[in-house]
Design a protein around this nucleic acid. Structure first.
Lengths: 217, 217
DNA sequence: TAGATTGTTAATCGATTAACAATC
DNA sequence: TAGATTGTTAATCGATTAACAATC
């Protein structure tokens, strides 16, 4: 008996719908009322049928002949993905990068709020100026559970990243963004991890530059 | 006549080979001489046949019966992707995040070196302590071209990200890592862009958590 | 040799793209 | 109505997975 985690939607579709959501938020603020799949596609660099296909997974959303109502489509995506209420996040590792992230404590217009910071160096906790609550790293599991923190950003050295991830998972975290240049895995299989390795991305980019073939056809 | 950029290798394969390269570097330091596709796969969370398939794109690399020689495989990947010589990179935008990145100026054990920082605020350039050369943003194109900088990291506000990207491309940059929460595109089609939007990733993670279905089978 | 492990071909899988009927 | 645009089915494409012959 194997434990399996599946997604009711393909990963690429989830990603694109999130991008669409972000664009819709901006359009809404600008007062745009309706938009077609073609226009959405142009703005996002995605084919129009791709947009329609993705949107169709949400159930009926558009008006044949006149496109999508911005508010309605945004609401449908929010409903499916549980957007709307502010999500709590935390940062583990308060070096330069972690401090930089904590600085801007509200992300994406109130969608996410950083409510806790952790570091293993207790002296450091006292020197950082912020109105976010800071805790020693050994309290990660406890604080994440108690505060109901759903998302975490890891900016600790590679050597500690996996251990930190395990503690977060024990606390009941839902997703982790990992900046340590090491692939972090989750013990539980319904916890999602996004590894963001800057050096790794630079490496991939330079590999692509090297192997890219440009030609006229 | 359309200008087309293709890659001689599938994107996912390039990405995995870069990850393999990184692992091989660590193995080499530890003194490991040989490793099998199975062991590589286990370490990276990839199927063994996937490893072999990717590696086979480099030409013959392994020893049937006894796996891959660490040094040799690393060398083959390095050769294909042009690794080996140190690549020059720059950071545009010296706020908290940009300063944090510039702080650690050498990435991935000397694979990448940050040789320039840019900011539109000239006063800021004088207050930052670093031995990396700093320049006003209007000199981006010039400096990138003159110093032969191949990679860039953008940490400016969204509103300026595309303009900065255009200047970098004009200077002849090869790849861009963009932290601004906006999808940046390259005018030239042989310039690669990796968008790293923290808030966007948090959003995708929370969408995945919401739509994941865990079950026993 | 026998066991291990590669390189490669073939089969499967899943996502993207194309096409079009439905309909506002 | 005529033009526009969706939702959906079918066709295509590309990558992953499986299988195995080759061979060290």
């Amino acid at each position: 008996m194997k434990k399996i985690t599946m997604n009711e939607m393909p990963f690429p579709a989830v990603t694109r719908l999130c991008t669409i959501y972000e664009l819709l938020s901006r359009l809404e603020q600008q007062g745009t009322v309706a938009i077609s799949s073609g226009e959405l596609g142009t703005r996002l660099g995605v084919a129009a049928h791709n947009i329609r296909k993705d949107v169709s997974r949400l159930g009926i959303a558009g008006n044949i002949g006149s496109g999508y109502e911005v508010k309605k489509l945004k609401g449908l995506i929010a409903g499916k993905f549980g957007f709307g209420e502010e999500k709590k996040a935390c940062v583990v590792g308060l070096g330069h990068l972690g401090s930089a992230i904590i600085q801007r404590s509200i992300f994406a217009d109130g969608e996410f709020r950083i409510v806790a910071g952790f570091d293993s160096n207790i002296n450091k906790l006292e020197t950082i100026k912020t109105n976010i609550d800071l805790f020693p790293a050994y309290q990660i599991t406890d604080v994440v559970g108690r505060k109901g923190i759903q998302l975490a950003i890891i900016t600790v050295p590679s050597s500690n990243a996996q251990e930190v991830a395990d503690r977060l998972v024990d606390g009941g975290i839902g997703g982790i963004v990992n900046f340590a240049p090491v692939v972090v895995k989750s013990k539980k299989n319904n916890v999602f991890v996004k590894n963001m390795d800057i050096a790794g991305e630079l490496r991939i980019l330079s590999a692509l530059v090297k192997t890219a073939k440009s030609f006229s056809a």
